[in-house]
Write a protein that binds this DNA or RNA. Structure first.
Lengths: 200, 200
DNA sequence: CCGCTACTATGACACCGGTCATAATCGCGG
DNA sequence: CCGCGATTATGACCGGTGTCATAGTAGCGG
């Protein structure tokens, strides 16, 4: 979710990416299809060609994309860790967001969160996609935790805790236009996470 | 935030309440002013009379109302606790949401979160109101924690952690139409919270 | 009854959104 | 060059939005 890269491969992929980008900034309702094609520098006629399901399809796919992205990202984080501890992973996750907030003046949040808020009870398929996104993300985190020695029973619960904390802190941080909440969460949760790895 | 009470005092107060109710369900963008007056059973003409600032004013006030409500609620929770421990307070906070989700099939979230997602970068005043709402809520929690013996330095950080965790878990729970995330968060965070009270 | 303020009623306006209909163009195999 | 499917272009439509203008009513002090 770098800066504003739009040079992804096909027009279709670009549109999905742009949709995610816009949604996470203004919410689903305020994101128009015309805005998406403009942002993706894609032809407007391609909308009804690539997304015959209309806006709902586009939004859903943007959410799915975000879920895959987050999951991939976790794997990359743990790979790049000096020494893999749960708290280090969590710090890395948080840092991604603090960097993102700083880079764009806290004008963007998480697209999945936006989709949940705006579509959870109007579009069943979008809601399901959001749930899947969270699940995929959590699975990646849980996997990383078990690899670090956390009993798999707790790993899942801790993964949802981590994701929930990040997502919530992101909300607060955006409202306050201050990274404070994110760093606080990272700080306070670290010890708890590390304490969960089984000593051997 | 009981069920669907609309019999609050004046028409103005009812409209603010209804706005919060609708916003937390469908988001700000999808909530029309006409919907609000209908839900509040208030005359449509009263809109421009009571809220000359238009939708922005109404939304902002709904957010402020939600913030006050959450803060008040915390005080009531701690008052009703058998024995006041941080984990017990957190469980009570979580339970309020699980009950709410169960009562309405997970069709509603937090109005403040919705406002952040939809208005954070379009309306400065609404964003500020959301920040104030979180701050008020956190202050109430932090106060409760210090009363329980948590050093005031950590109390603030823990309060934002609690709020972030609840808010994030609420998002996940709504997406999954399952209370799981909320209970997991409550479960995992409890010991950490209780460990923060200073033994004397 | 008057006058004044608080409130309500109602219709119109300008605007914008997603979607559809229809036609044009491209690109390539034959 | 033809044909044909994939893509793009464009304009229109319809429903819905927030907001405003204008007029009406209610209630009360004098």
């Amino acid at each position: 979710m770098a800066a504003g890269e739009v040079s992804g491969r096909g027009p279709r992929e670009r549109m999905v990416f742009s949709a995610a980008q816009l949604i996470r900034g203004r919410g689903v309702g305020a994101t128009g299809m015309r805005d998406v094609v403009a942002h993706a520098r894609a032809p407007r006629g391609s909308l009804q060609h690539y997304f015959p399901g209309g806006k709902e399809e586009l939004v859903t796919e943007a959410v799915e994309w975000a879920g895959r992205y987050a999951a991939r990202r976790v794997a990359r984080f743990v790979a790049g860790l000096p020494e893999p501890t749960p708290s280090a992973l969590f710090t890395a996750m948080v840092r991604q967001w603090t960097d993102d907030l700083a880079a764009r003046d806290a004008t963007s949040g998480c697209p999945v969160a936006a989709a949940v808020v705006d579509c959870a009870d109007t579009s069943e398929t979008t809601r399901t996609a959001a749930a899947a996104a969270f699940t995929a993300w959590a699975a990646a985190v849980a996997q990383a935790l078990t690899d670090m020695g956390v009993p798999s029973a707790r790993a899942e619960a801790l993964a949802t805790l981590m994701i929930s904390a990040v997502e919530g802190a992101l909300l607060v941080a955006r409202a306050e236009r201050d990274v404070r909440a994110l760093t606080a969460v990272s700080q306070e949760l670290g010890p708890l996470l590390d304490a969960a790895v089984e000593k051997r």
